[in-house]
Amino acid sequence: MARVGGRNAAFAWVVGLGCLAILGVLAALAVPMIPASVAWFGGAVENAQGTAPTSAPVAAAGDDEPTALPTECPELYDEALWATMRFSRGAVLTPSKDAPVTTATALVTALSPQVQLTCFWHADEGTVSTTLATVPPDAGAIAAAALPASGFGCETEGERTRCTRTDGDLTETIEAGGGLWLSTSEDAWHPAGYVSRTGDRIWG
């Protein structure tokens, strides 16, 4: 039988193999989406049947806005700052309920902060320690009156008082307001915006 003009067996094989390769690549790219697709489909079915959860979701650790007072260290940070701290060279986080790291020991004694959590970071650059606690409602006014004699400069920001002291590589910050205390001691390591960003997590 005569061959049909224009047909080339070798070319057809090459085209066929190319098509198979493309299909293989598309299949490989689609596999990771299968679990997400199944979860989405399941959620859609639940919504249609009226069986989907009705309670509001709780924000996960590291989200940009906390839903309540932090109870664990990751909740004290926005996502970008958390990543900065975690991935700094040699960074190790030690959570505890230890007393605040500060030279203002007389103020700590007077206010007796009830520590909720202390997040102590050690990295190659230095250390950062932050303590969240509850204090009397007038703690901000007491801090503003007492701390300037110890070299702190104090200012009011919204509902809280912020007092800061720098001595060489050491920077200390104590914030109090609304019955809350947030103090930070940065020794040689000064992450950008650390104090303001952790403060915003507490007071907004």
Score class of each variant (00 low, 15 high):
41 F>N: 13
164 T>S: 09
39 A>K: 07
38 V>L: 12
32 P>V: 03
159 E>T: 05
8 N>L: 11
174 I>N: 14
151 G>M: 07
163 C>I: 05
181 W>Q: 06
7 R>T: 07
1 M>D: 09
5 G>W: 00
22 I>V: 12
95 P>I: 09
102 T>A: 04
151 G>V: 11
198 T>P: 00
78 D>N: 15
163 C>L: 03
15 V>K: 08
88 S>G: 05
125 E>F: 13
19 C>G: 06
21 A>L: 12
115 V>E: 08
181 W>P: 05
68 A>N: 02
43 G>E: 10
100 P>H: 04
57 P>Y: 12
144 A>L: 03
79 E>P: 06
26 L>E: 10
184 T>I: 04
9 A>C: 00
158 G>I: 05
86 R>H: 12
149 A>M: 02
78 D>A: 14
72 E>P: 00
80 A>L: 07
105 T>M: 01
90 G>A: 09
73 C>M: 05
200 D>H: 11
150 S>Y: 10
101 V>K: 12
128 V>Y: 04
89 R>M: 14
154 C>L: 02
147 L>W: 02
85 M>S: 05
30 A>I: 10
101 V>W: 03
109 T>Q: 12
198 T>Q: 06
55 S>A: 15
31 V>L: 14
28 A>R: 09
19 C>Y: 02
26 L>N: 10
162 R>N: 06
24 G>N: 11
65 E>H: 03
154 C>F: 03
166 T>D: 08
82 W>L: 14
94 T>R: 11
75 E>T: 08
81 L>Q: 14
66 P>E: 08
103 T>F: 01
26 L>F: 07
112 S>C: 01
57 P>F: 03
4 V>A: 15
61 A>V: 12
184 T>Y: 06
81 L>W: 01
18 G>L: 11
146 A>F: 04
123 A>P: 00
98 D>S: 14
22 I>E: 01
92 V>M: 14
51 T>A: 15
14 V>I: 10
29 L>I: 03
202 I>V: 10
122 H>M: 13
162 R>P: 01
164 T>H: 04
43 G>T: 04
23 L>C: 08
164 T>Y: 06
54 T>I: 08
189 W>A: 13
101 V>Y: 09
181 W>L: 12
91 A>D: 13
31 V>N: 02
3 R>M: 06
137 P>T: 08
202 I>W: 05
126 G>P: 01
10 A>Y: 00
78 D>H: 11
86 R>K: 15
13 W>L: 13
14 V>A: 12
97 K>V: 07
28 A>E: 11
123 A>V: 00
130 T>Q: 11
177 G>A: 06
188 A>W: 00
107 L>M: 09
172 E>F: 07
20 L>M: 13
108 V>Y: 07
167 D>F: 05
168 G>V: 01
65 E>A: 08
138 D>K: 02
132 L>A: 06
17 L>K: 03
31 V>Q: 07
57 P>N: 07
28 A>H: 04
75 E>C: 10
104 A>N: 09
17 L>M: 11
9 A>R: 03
32 P>F: 07
8 N>I: 10
92 V>W: 09
112 S>N: 04
62 G>H: 04
6 G>T: 02
44 A>I: 04
45 V>N: 07
184 T>F: 08
